[in-house]
């Protein structure tokens, strides 16, 4: 089981992200409503991948990302940055700060699940089900 931490200040958006990934096998979800809660979660429990919103109150997603990358324990944890249309300029910034992938809302659920599978090394298993 891998743990995916979904960080967004909108509860609805977190549920949408989780719904996009519901067909990915063997993952658990954790949710954080702010950058602070995300870092707290990471400090206290293992997290295998983050899906990170950028524009959040208190602490910008980029600050969360930069902190993770500067910390010797978390500098390899994959992070998919998810942000809203209009912030495209932060694309390069996010990748430069160490984001593994970058997606703009509205995102295509399949793209997100492909990124997550790829980053977690979960292969698709098509034949077993039919």
């Amino acid at each position: 089981m891998k743990t995916v931490l979904v960080v967004d200040d909108s509860a609805t958006m977190r549920r949408m992200v989780i719904a996009s990934l519901r067909h990915v096998p063997d993952i658990n979800f954790a949710e954080a409503g702010s950058g602070l809660e995300a870092l707290e979660w990471i400090a206290l429990a293992p997290v295998d991948l983050l899906i990170l919103d950028l524009n959040m109150p208190d602490m910008h997603g980029l600050d969360v990302l930069r902190f993770l990358r500067s910390h010797h324990t978390y500098n390899t944890t994959p992070v998919v940055v998810l942000t809203t249309k209009g912030d495209e300029s932060s694309h390069v910034t996010a990748l430069a700060a160490g984001a593994s992938h970058y997606l703009t809302k509205p995102f295509i659920p399949q793209t997100l699940s492909t990124y997550v599978r790829e980053l977690l090394g979960i292969m698709q298993d098509m034949e077993t089900l039919l």
Binding site: L36, E37, L39, M59, D63
Partner: peptide
């Protein structure tokens, strides 16, 4: 938790800045 601490601090004044830090032994601090 950090969220409840933040709520407490908001009760007593204005939060000007929140910064994540690395505490001794590599743990996360705010």
């Amino acid at each position: 938790s950090v969220a409840s601490i933040r709520a407490r601090l908001e009760q007593i004044g204005n939060i000007i800045r929140i910064e994540p830090r690395v505490a001794p032994h590599g743990t996360v601090a705010f």
